[in-house]
Amino acid sequence: MKPLLKIEDLKMHFPVKGGVFLRAMGACKAVDGVSLTVNEGETVGLVGESGCGKSTLAKATARLLDPTAGRIEFEGTDITHLRRRELNPVRREMQMIFQDPAESLNPRHSVRDIVEEPLVIQKRGSRAERGKRVAELLEKVGLSESAGNRYPFEFSGGQRQRIGIARALALNPKLILCDEPVSALDVSVQSQVLNLLMELQEDFGLAYLFIAHDLAVVKHVSDRVAIMYLGKIVELAGADEIYENPKHAYTKALISAIPVADPSLDRDRRLLEGDVPSPIDPPQGCAFGHRMGHPKWEASVGMDLALREVSPGHWVQPCPCCTDES
């Protein structure tokens, strides 16, 4: 397995101005020391609490943000500090599907122009060839060719998300950072899109960093799954392994909160207690243990919480409060 993307100890901190007077109040440590590798042709699932830094990690990796610290290597090249122009060849091979289509699709451009744009920027093919490619892409994501003449606002939420997917596929990249690519789709279209992504992987060896909240979807498409909590990865393992044998308390909480499509089950859901922690002024030590008020949390303060391999390929944060592995 050849590493395609190597993220090392990546940090992305945002300055925080707050209160009524917009004073500088410190930093929002959205991503706070993440290391993760995506191999060629591999899918790594990324799951975590809302606001834990998944989109920020993806945007920093795509260099839409300038990381605060750490290193990003893509195809053996350090891209952490490349400038806009130098990033052009990287963009050809690394694309992103954005979480909120409203944020990423230019409302004044027709769908055809949006999907064609990466081809134009990278000077691919003649006009006619590009037109053919756009039609093909639209069909692949389940939109009719006539959709090309229309504008993003004329589409439903799920249709808009598919426009973003078509655009990301346009250049046949090697890696796609998928930020909630299917969450706005009904289960059948979702399965169609997932089948398409898996097919492209099979045929062209595409790799994905796949961010999603639907744990069944993540399990299905991923080779490995990383669980993130408050700016850090707390567990990383093979996709079957992590569901069958979760080690970290947050991973366990996630798995037990999966809604089940069976109304005859009367499940009494135990909700997570405690206040969701904030990346602005995060707690010391293990953030999840702190939140749950775990009696052994204090012992995690000052500990080295770097992931530890507890069985081949299964990595977990070794804190006394959330795992039995310390």
């Binding site: 939109l143 289960v187 059948s188 279209v189 997932l194 089948n195 069944a216 299905h220 996709a239 999966i258």
Partner: peptide, 28 residues
């Protein structure tokens, strides 16, 4: 068809997922 397409944890990974074949026609 919709109920058959529900993502499930107990499916074998990376296998083809069941879908409703074809696409919804456009409104026209």
């Amino acid at each position: 068809g919709l109920l058959r397409s529900i993502p499930r944890l107990d499916r074998e990974r990376k296998t083809k997922l069941p879908t409703i074949p074809g696409n919804v026609p456009s409104l026209q």
